[in-house]
Design a protein around this nucleic acid. Sequence first.
DNA 1: TCGGTTTACGAAATCGGTTTCGTTTCGAGT
DNA 2: ACTCGAAACGAAACCGATTTCGTAAACCGA
Lengths: 340, 340
Amino acid sequence: MAQMRIKDIAAEAGVSPATVSRYLNNRPGQMTEETRARIAAVIERTGYRPRAAARNLRSSRTNLIGVILADIANPFSSAMLEGLSASAAARGCSLMTAISGNDPAKEAESLTRLIDAGVDGLVVNTCGGNDEAIAAAAGRLPVVLLDRDVADGGVDLVTSNNRELVAGLVDALAAAGSERLCLLTEASDDSPVRRERAEAFADELSRRGLAGEVVTLADGGATGVGRLDKTIRDYAGKRLGLIAVNGLVFLRLTEALAQLGPSLPAGLKIATFDDYPWNHVLFGGVTTAAQDTLTIAERVVERLSERIDVVTTTVGEAAKLAPKRIEIPGHIEHRASTSR
Amino acid sequence: MAQMRIKDIAAEAGVSPATVSRYLNNRPGQMTEETRARIAAVIERTGYRPRAAARNLRSSRTNLIGVILADIANPFSSAMLEGLSASAAARGCSLMTAISGNDPAKEAESLTRLIDAGVDGLVVNTCGGNDEAIAAAAGRLPVVLLDRDVADGGVDLVTSNNRELVAGLVDALAAAGSERLCLLTEASDDSPVRRERAEAFADELSRRGLAGEVVTLADGGATGVGRLDKTIRDYAGKRLGLIAVNGLVFLRLTEALAQLGPSLPAGLKIATFDDYPWNHVLFGGVTTAAQDTLTIAERVVERLSERIDVVTTTVGEAAKLAPKRIEIPGHIEHRASTSR
DNA sequence: TCGGTTTACGAAATCGGTTTCGTTTCGAGT
DNA sequence: ACTCGAAACGAAACCGATTTCGTAAACCGA
């Protein structure tokens, strides 16, 4: 018998397909312990597995969660993917992933492809440029945004407490004796996350009466060095503290500092966002604002499940959930780079 | 009209559902340019999208490729995922991903979950311990192994040319003046890839008449330092060259060297596998054996597609493809760590 | 013992496409 | 003009589960 169907199982067990179906989904209409056992035995013996396609068609649920990631090279994304995968699996769901590579066109294409594939819900770590399309999608199926918001608002968002993390890094640098602070960013990065961190940085400086600014390292290696060199000279004589707005900027900074070599100002302190593995190693350990990726992933899936349940349970427009913004607290890893 | 079905489209266009289906899949039985245009117009106007579940059920194809990755934290895996995603999308397929986290139990679970979900084929970057299950799966649906082989053999495998890469790194170190070479590995890593590199390393040493050995850094931070320290003292007075068998070992090595600090032997040269972004930065640039991840991904999907086509085209056991081993050449990035 | 409510289960419709099998139409060859 | 084969298309079966609806048996209190 090549492939068994539910009716074959039913026949073997001497019941109807409907009953087997009830067994498979352990439905409210319970069955006798005896029939349950008989069905279980047949399934066990034959190794029967229900065909997902048939199930999906009739129930119009797939137990699939679509995930669109902007940049998988970013360890934040890989950690997130791992977390999402685990959380989804715990709920019996699988992940359909798409990677936009920060290309809005690819992101848009992924959006329609995943929706067409029939995912129950969508997790989007947007690269920007598709705000309307994403908002529209959120009107048609459950969507939870990851880390990056869309302009419209009105869509669930799970993110870190960026403002507190910025404050934490400023704290660490100030405690290490820095008198002037710079937040290093990249020209190409105009994400809401960067903006939020930059704003928080400015607020924090003025709150404490500290001097400093946001410095945009130009894209492309060499110019980054030049800009950094200039910054360091601008603040000559003062104890300088640098914060990299994300892990990639931090790498660029490291490269630039290596090129500047011996001329580094005394007492330069460094801190960064994103807890990459090499943060333990570079500069003897870099003080880092680490996000709680596992919890973020867990809450994303949890929230998405809520919405999916609402969609499949309630009939009409009845119980529409209000959009929600969820902030997951991260923490500061204090390392050698901000010791006195 | 909330959701259109194919019969609605057919009615609007004044044709039968069968014809619309033919249009959607542009089937051999061509249609008049005129009917084609009429159908296209209706679909365009209504924004109709066929339901994947229904299509899957009848055609028993899903256009889904399952991917099981051992360790997404490894940038090799993320790069691979990005490549797979692109290659699959180019063929109109989506990716269902699962991450085992190097846990054989999770890997086994992912295997059945993805198969149950009805993927057309499977890409497996195995963490080991499921060789029989994987071989069995390969008997029931197309499977291509990524980077890591299974014991049984008999399953397609796409991998890098590890032996040549090892030779290339040995070359680089020898050219930099190293007299003694060590290949650093991790105790926990017993993968076929590690074994292959270790064997190639031993062969290469004996071929050139060089002295050296494979050194296993114990797991856990501190002991790694001790083992490394001992190694360096063992070879005191000789110019030592170290090769990290993979990117994680390299990080461990970096950490250990940082702790050993000033006592480093003069002329220590370093090289590593896996082109992580920080390889540009650490030690002023580390000579690296880089794998051609994009090509690997492309070939994996290509091979899988071949198998999928064979399965859906041929009737019985007719044209079974012989298992194939595909090696994608990588290359050596020469950087400062092996300059004279 | 009897009416009324659960409980356990079966028959058949259903999800929305694809595929098979015919039928009609069209054009080429003689 | 007539035949024949291919091209264009429609009717209906089909994929394999879920779900609705209905019925018989079991249970339960009065």
